[in-house]
Simulated scan of single mutants.
Amino acid sequence: MTQRRPRPRTLDELLAEGASVPTEGWDFSWFEGRATEARPSWGYATTVAGRLGSVDGPVLDVQTGGGEVLAFALSRASGRPPLVVATEGWPPNVSKAAALLRTRGATVVASAEDAPLPFTDGSFALVTSRHPVRPHWREIARVLRPGGTYLAQHVGPDSAYEVVEHFLGPQPAERRHARHPDRERKDAEAAGLEIVELRAERLRMEFFDIAAVVHFLRKVIWMVPGFTVEAYRPRLRELHERIEAEGSFVAHSSRHLVQARRPGGPRG
């Protein structure tokens, strides 16, 4: 992204803009010039595209959001799996993903993020997911066929906690480390999966105006649960003044790449 700041505007104008931008899907293009986030070195969407070109069975993308990442991967894949299905639980995203992925030959199934996956045992050769709210390891293991793979990018511990703690104050270690890759390794193995690869990186984020912070918190709703401009206006004003004085607000995201395999079947 180009790191340029928009023309100065009043706090009220910026808050109103951040509160009005649609939040459906996982398209982050609105942040262009207003916020940046470094990307992990492994290139998740490109990695998925490579796997889609070689997988020899049905594919499931869990919590697909607006379908943007899966659509990109399908457009770059050298081959086409025999069946591609995606799940999504938020109704506005279900509609958006269905319209987008239909053009790529994929089907979207409405399924709440905390519900059992609506598929029979051993249905998929590959299950993918980008930033699931919580990985349901036993369900993932159940719907994978023997020898099948789970390939995902997860949000890691302490991700963007500079933002979270500005609004909520210091957070307990239990919440900060709930997404630790070591814990996820144990949970995956307890569900019967073998971890093939687990890579973690911490990445720089930078917000150049308060509208970007507002939009981010409205889009990533688990960061500050129940966030509204009205409820947090004093903290927003304080952060706006800090950005105006310092030029930006720096935070750090945490990501890890997970590849896990259901034992049995051919290796590939």
Rank of each mutant, 00 (worst) to 15 (best):
T128C: 13
P132H: 02
E197R: 15
D187M: 10
V196T: 14
E17L: 14
T128W: 12
S75H: 08
V250G: 00
H154W: 01
A178M: 10
A200R: 11
G226Y: 05
W137Y: 13
V48M: 11
F249W: 07
V109E: 09
G156A: 13
F72W: 13
A200N: 05
A188R: 09
G247L: 05
E194C: 03
P181E: 04
R185S: 08
V55R: 10
T107A: 14
H154C: 14
R134A: 14
F31H: 11
E88R: 00
E37N: 10
R267S: 12
P181K: 06
R233M: 07
A245C: 02
G53H: 13
A97N: 04
V213P: 09
A152I: 11
V224A: 03
F167W: 00
L236N: 07
T2S: 14
R5I: 07
V220W: 10
A212L: 05
P135N: 05
P40S: 04
V196F: 01
Q171T: 07
R204N: 04
E194A: 14
V224I: 10
V59E: 00
W222D: 15
A231Q: 14
S54T: 15
G67W: 01
V224S: 08
E17C: 03
V214Y: 04
E17M: 02
I221W: 08
I140R: 04
S254I: 08
T64L: 02
E68H: 11
G50R: 09
E13S: 07
A212G: 11
E201I: 10
G79F: 06
E88D: 03
A45K: 09
E189V: 02
R104A: 15
A16N: 03
V143E: 07
V21Y: 07
E206N: 04
W42E: 10
T149V: 15
L203I: 04
S75M: 09
V48P: 00
G57D: 03
Q171G: 02
R5D: 03
A212C: 09
V213G: 13
V21A: 08
R242Y: 12
V229E: 03
Q153S: 14
R39F: 08
G33K: 02
R261M: 06
R4N: 13
L14G: 01
V62N: 03
I140E: 07
E13N: 02
R145Y: 00
T36R: 09
Q171P: 01
G192R: 06
T36P: 00
D114P: 00
G57I: 06
G53E: 06
T64M: 02
F119P: 09
P132Q: 00
H177N: 13
A97K: 08
E197S: 15
L100R: 15
R179L: 10
R130V: 02
R267N: 06
L168Q: 11
A178K: 13
G66P: 03
R9Y: 00
V214Q: 05
R134W: 12
P8S: 08
E197I: 05
